[in-house]
Amino acid sequence: MQRRDRQLGLLYALPIGVFLAVAFLAPILLVAAFSTMPPKVFSIWNMPDFSAYYTVITQGYWKTVAWSLGMSMAATLILFVVCWPLAYGMAKVFGRFSLVLTIGVVMTLFVSENIRLFGWVLTLMKGGLVEGYIRAWTGTGFDGLLYNVPVIVFGLCYVYLPFMLFPLAQGIAMVPEDARAAAFDLGATRWQIFREIELPLAMPGILVGSLLTFVLAAGALAETKLLGGQAVIVIAEEVETAFTYGQNWPLGAALAMVLIVIVGGIAIWGIGRADLDRMMGRR
């Protein structure tokens, strides 16, 4: 039985394993190779000179990296605070309503991110839903709410809310009801239960949710472009610009590598710590 399990496991893992090796790992290695090339070449059969990294360091790209990471960190923190009560409700209080909520939130994931962000543009712009109606009712309008840093963070929060909400709810559901009741019985207040019991026991969910949000937000592009206008430039946009307008693949690859190393490092660290079997409910 066990021998057969081992063979079947390997066999069934082959299709997706091979596919990801060819279409995911190989392209990343290629990016790594390209990032060492001299400027503006379109093939990896050149002498590596690592000049792209020199450009990345000297040309002030650290600023865009800092903006990306800073804004995604802000979005992660805000989302944690916003999602905790809701996740708590879904895991412990709602019952049937939590299914409604789940379906309602999942459905938004199926709508192209562009369309939803565009909807926010229509909502928040001068002459948009908010400003337009306020002007119509009160007679005085304002300049619209777009094209600044807070609105980009807002957009990140909006788009990545489900990625925080669901892991968090999963994490809270993993807190045994008895552990909370026992702490309560032993004299803990609500706040003490949160700090001593729920927070540490829901940590796997908190970790996955925060990582997912942070990592996805760090590589985000559309929020800045559609909502932020020219307020700031993020790393993903620099990568895109280097590839398209700049026609400088090595520079784009080097910038991409910076993002990949940061994001990949965090992701691998986080994924390595989570016990997937337990989180997903293996018997």
């Binding site: 995911f24 392209p27 990343i28 290629l30 990016v31 990582l211 997912l212 990592v215 996805l216 760090a218 590589g219 985000a220 592009l221 993903a236 990568v239 895109e240 590839f243 784009g252 991409a256 993002l259 990949i260 994001v263 990949g264 992701a267 994924i271």
Partner: peptide
């Protein structure tokens, strides 16, 4: 987890 824009470019 991977940034999709970067994946597309890669």
């Amino acid at each position: 987890f991977f940034p999709q824009t970067v994946l597309g470019l890669a």
